[in-house]
Amino acid sequence: MSAPALSIEQLVGGYVVGVDILRGIDLRVNPCEIVTIIGPNGAGKSTLVKAAFGLAKVRTGRVLLDGDDVTGCRPNELVRRGIGYVPQRQNVFPTLSVRDNLMIGGITRTELIAERTERMFEVFPRLKEREKQAAGTLSGGERQMVAFARALMPRPSVLLLDEPSAGLAPRIVGEVFEIIQRVRDEANVSVLLVEQNARRALAISDRGYVLDQGMTAYEGTGTELLADPKVGELYLGGA
């Protein structure tokens, strides 16, 4: 069995010393899987992704990338090692053009910038049309594309997405989930997704975890979790 693309072992941590939001989490993402984390507000979903990406403090436990211990590495080091991260809000550089946003995304693999930029424009033709426009002037959905494309520039093996559908118009939400699937298929990337929009996220996921009060409450394939009556009642807002 090959090593998981990303695995999190017995992770305990949070933002402030003495206040652990995450209280012992085990999780793995296999190569090319889409894995979704759902759970109520305050369960620690975003914190988990941030801890994996070096933005929140890990007190004990480990984060492994392709079997290598990367616990406590700085974000830019993790990007270099193959993790892409798309934060929830403010995930584009507003005064930079679309092309420059992508260029920044490729900064750890400068030799790839030209080739990858063209590739991203193929995947997201709408961005090609807006190539010279400042990212801050784009629509919400287009900005999300820029953010994804930027994270995909250095060919990451794992993509961390923090609530990509938050704050988007319902019409665009479906589009975002389609993009996530497309990106996985075309870029061969593993995706760890945190979502409020649990049903739709699970529907495109290979597997999912339910987080509650900083611990893993349930684990299963996307369809299993969607079908589980307990999960449905407690975490998906009833049937």
Binding site: F53, L55, R74, P75, N76, V79, R80, Y85, P87, Q90, N91, V92, F93, P94, T95, L96, I104, G105, I107, T108, R150, A151, P154
Partner: peptide, 11 residues
């Protein structure tokens, strides 16, 4: 524009 995002983008 955004120091945190720059760091998260690999800068």
């Amino acid at each position: 524009d955004d120091v945190d995002l720059a760091e998260s983008s690999g800068v």
